[in-house]
Design a protein around this nucleic acid. Structure first.
Lengths: 135, 135
DNA sequence: GCAGTACCTTACTTCAAAGTGGGTACTTCC
DNA sequence: GGAAGTACCCACTTTGAAGTAAGGTACTGC
């Protein structure tokens, strides 16, 4: 008899190690290629669509729009469209989104810092592997 | 004149917002679908290949092997193969990998906790959108 | 002597993610 | 009056990530 019988609720039910757990999707959305960068950028404050596009190198309009929609649907970003000409749409983090953003921002910062270590590790690995092939 | 002229080194050069920055790849490896789960699992200590396979629901042998190789090459995971029969291979985190694992573990935990909030947000979003269509 | 175990690798296939190029509707700038 | 800016959407194509299935080794146990 497990912890959550009796009622069909989700007390402690979420488990990322379960293949069909919804937490997997939540995780995949915030750690997605562009999701990470959008969240990190928004941590700095409100941004317009084209500001995000310019800030995040290499993102296409399509992917940015798609990423923002996913994040909005999950309740991480708030979208405010002003019915003016030219169109003005402002994106901000929700409290929930700020929690996520803080974590991925840390990760992004860490990745930047550790680039030299990783590059060195890769060289070691590749050299060791090449050596094994020739031997 | 920028901060890093004079020498061709990489002082403060890493920037995740630059399309061609290596930090992008580092980030993508640790935040990859299976990478997150492998790192989080290894935070608990040494694991064998088949232990990881059993622990992480839904991962195929191919993807697990591939993920472990990527993480090993980047210097996050240490692989120790014992030449015995049947083969025994032990995976552990390197100090660098532990830094990454701690962060993604936090993210995984957070995702589990926030599943109800996200599910609720999605319902709101979908309901609002459906309403707009019918109106 | 065949199944089973452990740790993969390779080949083939599938499918979703991502890029490309177009269009919209309206305004301001030159 | 033509270009540029704004915030997208849509259709199409390409890429690459992932799943499936099979093979391979060197044994152990039945």
């Amino acid at each position: 008899m497990s912890v959550s019988d009796e009622v069909g609720d989700v007390r402690r039910a979420a488990d990322v190690n379960a293949a069909d757990c919804p937490s997997r999707l939540v995780l995949e959305h915030v750690t997605s290629r562009w999701g990470v960068l959008v969240l990190a950028e928004l941590l700095d404050g409100m941004r317009r669509f084209s500001e995000l596009r310019r800030a995040i190198g290499g993102v296409s309009e399509k992917m940015l729009a798609q990423t923002l929609q996913t994040l909005e649907r999950d309740g991480f970003v708030h979208r405010e469209a002003h019915p003016v000409i030219p169109p003005r749409v402002e994106y901000t983090l929700t409290p929930l989104g700020e929690e996520a953003a803080r974590q991925v921002w840390g990760l992004a910062r860490w990745a930047e810092d550790r680039v030299p270590s990783v590059l060195a590790a890769r060289e070691d690995y590749d050299r060791a592997k090449a050596g094994r092939v020739h031997a």
